[in-house]
Measured scan of single mutants.
Amino acid sequence: YFQGQLNAMAHQIQEMFPQVPYHLVLQDLQLTRSVEITTDNILEGRI
């Protein structure tokens, strides 16, 4: 994955969860590489 793709995914998640800091979303995406998994992590309070 290149950074631009991760940034696009992070923006997509931020639209759904504007209360979660962008850098935390991006940090999780770098591990998961998945909008779905990061979204689940937010919903389950891991982020």
Rank of each mutant, 00 (worst) to 15 (best):
E36W: 07
E15C: 15
R46M: 06
N7F: 13
Q27V: 08
S34Q: 03
D40F: 12
S34L: 04
Q30I: 15
L6V: 07
E36G: 07
I13G: 00
T38W: 03
N41V: 05
L24R: 05
V25L: 09
Q14M: 12
Q30D: 06
L29G: 02
H23T: 07
P21M: 06
F17N: 03
M9F: 08
L26H: 04
L29H: 00
Q27Y: 09
Q5W: 15
S34P: 01
N7M: 14
E44G: 11
T39G: 04
P21K: 05
Q12R: 12
I47G: 03
V35W: 07
F17L: 03
N7C: 15
I37Y: 06
H11T: 10
L6Q: 03
I37C: 09
T38R: 00
F2I: 13
Y1F: 12
R33E: 08
L26K: 03
E36Y: 07
I13D: 00
T32L: 03
L31D: 08
L26D: 02
V25F: 03
H23Y: 14
E44L: 12
Q19A: 09
G45P: 01
Q27F: 09
R46H: 06
A8F: 10
N7L: 14
R33V: 07
R33P: 02
H11W: 08
V35R: 07
A8I: 11
N41G: 03
I42Y: 03
H11C: 13
T38V: 02
I47H: 02
L6A: 04
Q3S: 05
L24C: 14
N7G: 09
T38I: 01
L43V: 10
Y1K: 13
Q30C: 15
E36N: 08
P18K: 05
L24I: 11
E15G: 09
H23M: 08
N7H: 15
N41M: 02
N41Q: 01
I42G: 01
T39N: 04
R46A: 04
Q14F: 12
I42A: 02
Q12H: 10
H23C: 15
M16K: 11
H11Y: 09
Q19G: 12
N7W: 12
L6R: 02
Y22L: 15
